[in-house]
């Protein structure tokens, strides 16, 4: 229940199958915004940090690929600082946006980001958080955006990450990307079923 004197948040509605028109018009051939979709590029040549590719698909409870999805990511820079006024822990890399947006391919269902591996951040109580990327997913049939986190394999900090450790052990692996090669991580999202990704209410 929302407390008295506090307004209700506006209800969410699905982004629908044509989310591209508003969030990535150039991706569907609508020439807008100088030909560049928002957050289609997170880096410039001077961005600090280890370059990585984050890629994957979204699958529904019937095993079908989601071909009309939109994936957004939000992450700290290589030193663990967010490019946001709310992060006063340090000075963020001015060459890194921290925010990326990519539709799933209309035919293959694959999303892909070129980014950097984020640094460690801290909980408000000072405990360390393992490097992670916040991910937010919308599509037709999703009534309210689904939020999750992407963690990295072979990170010793995962063993003490407060969020990961709070996830039931049999589902924890759904939050950890697979390393495909030295710089490519795969993170497949499963919306429903036995291998359902852990989604977060934060």
């Amino acid at each position: 229940m929302t407390k008295p004197n506090i307004l209700h948040e506006s209800p969410s509605q699905t982004a629908g199958p044509y989310v591209h028109i508003g969030c990535a018009p150039n991706f569907v051939g609508i020439q807008m915004y100088g030909g560049k979709d928002l957050a289609s590029n997170m880096l410039d040549p001077e961005t600090s940090g280890e370059r990585i590719t984050l890629t994957g698909t979204i699958t529904d409870g019937d095993g079908k690929l989601v071909l009309d999805g939109l994936v957004e990511i939000w992450q700290a820079d290589a030193n663990g600082v967010y490019p946001s006024a709310a992060d006063t822990s340090g000075t963020a890399d001015p060459h890194f946006t921290g925010f990326g947006r990519c539709p799933t391919n209309l035919d293959t269902g694959i999303y892909q980001f070129q980014t950097i591996k984020p640094g460690q951040t801290k909980m408000r109580d000072g405990r360390a958080q393992a490097p992670h990327i916040t991910m937010w997913i919308v599509a037709r049939g999703i009534n309210i955006g689904l939020q999750t986190r992407v963690y990295f394999p072979d990170e010793s900090a995962n063993a003490t990450d407060p969020l990961l450790q709070s996830v039931p052990e049999d589902r924890r692996h759904t939050l950890i990307a697979h390393k495909l090669d030295d710089q490519t991580y795969q993170f497949n999202i499963v919306l429903q079923g036995d291998e359902e990704t852990v989604f977060l209410d934060i």
Partner: peptide, 28 residues
């Protein structure tokens, strides 16, 4: 709304304390 049939997670989303990851946000 039939599209939700296979696109709705069975599990409730997991509650967790907010961190800087959620308190901070991109600026445009």
């Amino acid at each position: 709304y039939r599209s939700t049939t296979f696109r709705s997670p069975n599990h409730k989303p997991l509650r967790f304390d907010q961190t800087i990851s959620e308190i901070a946000g991109p600026t445009f």
